[in-house]
Design a protein around this nucleic acid. Sequence first.
DNA 1: ATACGATTTTTTTTT
DNA 2: AAAATCGTAT
Length: 681
Amino acid sequence: MKKYILHEPTGKVETHIDFKGNLNQQQYEVVTRAEGPCLVLAGAGSGKTRTLIYRLAYLLERGESPRSVLLMTFTNKAAREMRDRTEMLLKYTPKGLWSGTFHHVGNRCLRMFAREVGFERDFGILDQHDSLDLVKASMKKVSARAREERFPKPSVVQSIISLSVNTGRTIEDVLEDRFPYFARFTEDIQEVAKIYDSKKKSSGNMDYDDLLLKWKWLLENVPAARNRFSGQFRYIMVDEYQDTNFLQADIVDILAGRNGNLLVVGDDAQSIYSFRGARVENILNFPKRLKDVKIFRLETNYRSTPEILDLANHSLVHNKEQFRKELKAVNPSVDKPALVEVKDLYSQASFVAQRVLEMREEGVEMKDIAVLFRAHYQSAELQMELVKRGIPYVVRGGIRFFEQAHIKDVLSYMKILSNPVDEIAWIRALTMCPGIGPGYAERIYEHFRNTGRDLMPFIRSEDISRVVPKKAQQGYARFQKIMRALTDPAAGQAPGEIIEIIMEAGYQTHVLAAFDNAKDRIDDIHELVNFSHDYTSVNDFLNDITLRENFRGETVTGANDEDEQLVISTIHQAKGLEWDAVMVIGLCEGQFPHPKSMKEDREMEEERRLFYVAVTRARKFLYLLHPVTRFDYHMGTVVARRSRFLEELDAKDYEVWEVDSSSMFGGDDEDGGEEVIIDMD
DNA sequence: ATACGATTTTTTTTT
DNA sequence: AAAATCGTAT
C-alpha cells in the first residue's frame, strides 16, 4: 500500500499542468481561487471530481505540503480514485496526504489521542453486525418485557441509538420524532443504550458512530489535539457535502477553524442518506453559518445526453425543497430513454440479460453497463438469469468480504487473543459451538471475567461445569481446543500463522459441517491468509480491516477480466459513478419508492432524489424497467402500477417499449445447451 | 423453566 | 439472509 514514493515537491515546482486549458471557466475559478470558506454547488456530471483533483494538484504545485491537505470523501473507493487520478495528473505520488472517509480520518486521529478519550491506542472497531450482536446482548435485561409487549427489534433499537448519536438528539427526541409508536419504551431503550455503551467500553471497542462522536469530543475538549489537527490541515476539502450529518459538519468546522480554507462540494439534489442522519441543511445553510463564503456553481453537464438530463430535471421539479436546478447538457443526442414494460420479474431479468448481450454486440463494453435497483433483494432473479446465461457480473454493495460469517468467525478468535475482554468476540466464537447459544455464551464470558484470571490459565485449566450444562461443556471443548492451540507459547505470532492454527485446530472441520459451500469458504479464508501477509502484528491487521471497503466484492461468473464485468448495484452504491448504459429495474409502486417512505413528504422527496441519482448515472443509454406484476409475501403475485416517478414524467421524455411476453418464455424452460455463452478470451 | 436449534416468515438504503 | 416462532432437550 505504501511502497512507491518517488519524490515530494519542495518549495516551488514548475507547473506543467495546463489548468486553464483543461478546465472550464467555472472549474478554473474554483481551482485557483478557492481560499477561505467556499461552497461549490456541483450538479450531477459537472466534473466535480475533476475540479477537486485539479485543485489538489494546484495546491501541491504551488508548494503546499501534502500533509497539510485533508480530503474527505464519501467512500474509500472515491478516495482511491482521487489519489490515482491525482497521481496521473502530477506524475508523482504525493506522500503524506490525508484522504479518506470521515470514519477513516476519525480513526486515525483517535488512535493518536486514544488515551484522551478513555481508550487504549489499539481499540477495536465494531462493524454493523458486531454492534448488532452487542445490542442484542444489551437487551437481555429488558427481554422479559420485550417478549410480552411489542418491543422494537434489536436492529431497530440499534438504529434508534445510532440516529440519536448522529443527529445529536436525545433518545427521547428521536423516538418522539421518528418512532412515536415506541415512545412508551423510552426508558427501556435508554437503559439498553447505557448498557450497550458500557459494554463497548469494557470490551475496548468503538462502533462507527464513536469514531465521529469521540473525534468531535476530542477536538472540542482537548486543546492539544485540536491545535495539532487544525494547525496541520491548512486546506480542507469535503466531497459529497450534502450527505454529511451534523456531527461531521461540526468536525469540519472545528478543523477548519484556524486556517479557514474550507472547500465543500456537493449537490442538494443528490442527498440520499438522511436515514443515516445526513442533513441537507448543512449545505443549504453553509453560506449563513460561515462568514464571507464564496459560492461557485458548476452547471455544465459533461456526462449525459440532453434527453437523459431532461428526464432527470423533469423528475426533480416535483420536489418542493430544493436549491436551484439549471443543468446544461453539452453532449449530442443519442437515443431517447426507454420505458420498458415487462410482464414480471423473470421477463425483466430476461430482458436485461438480452439487452446487455445486444449492447455488447453493438460495441458497448460490459464494464460500461450497469443495472441499478432500490433494494438488494430485487436483484435475485436477475442474478440467476445472468448466471444461467454465463454473463459475468460484479455485485456492488452486497455482503462485503470481511463481513461474511466465516471470515468474522476466524477474526473473532484473533480478537480474543489480541484483546481477551472483547465480549463480542467471545460470544461469537462460543455460539458457533454446538450446545452453546447466546445464553450460555454470556455465562461463560461472565465467568471468565469474574474469575479475574488471564486468558491462558483460564483456557488451560478453568472448570466450567458449574456454569453451564453438560451439552454446552462438550461444545466448549471445541472452543477450548482452538484457544489452547492459539495460546501455546510455541505458536506463531504472525496473523497468517494464527489463522492457519485456527483452521487446523478445528475451525476447518466446523466449516465443512456447517456450510454447504464449504470449499468456497475455505478458499476465502486462504485468501484472508494471503491478505494478512502485509501485516506483522495481529493488532494492525484487525484494526485495519473493519474500515476497509470491499476487498473483494461478490464476484460471480467467469471473472477472467475485471473490465469485462457487468455492474449490478444498489443506487446508493452507484453514487458518484457513471456508465454508458444504465438500466434501472423494479420501477413500480410498492418497490420504488419504498413503501416505508410513503408517510412523510421529506422521505418521498429523498426517494425522488434517489431516482434522480439513478438516471443521472447514464451517459448515453437509459432503460427504465417496469414489471407489471410483483410478488407480495402476503398476497402472492399482485398487479403493480408504474412507479409514480415514471408517471410524473412528461410522455415526451421517453419511448415506451412493449416487450412481447411470449418471447420471454422461450429460454425459460429446459432445452439444455441453449444458453448464450460469452467467450471470455 | 430455560435455552438451544430447526422451521417458517419477511426483507431499504450504509460508514 | 435475518428475525420470529415453535418444538424439544436439559
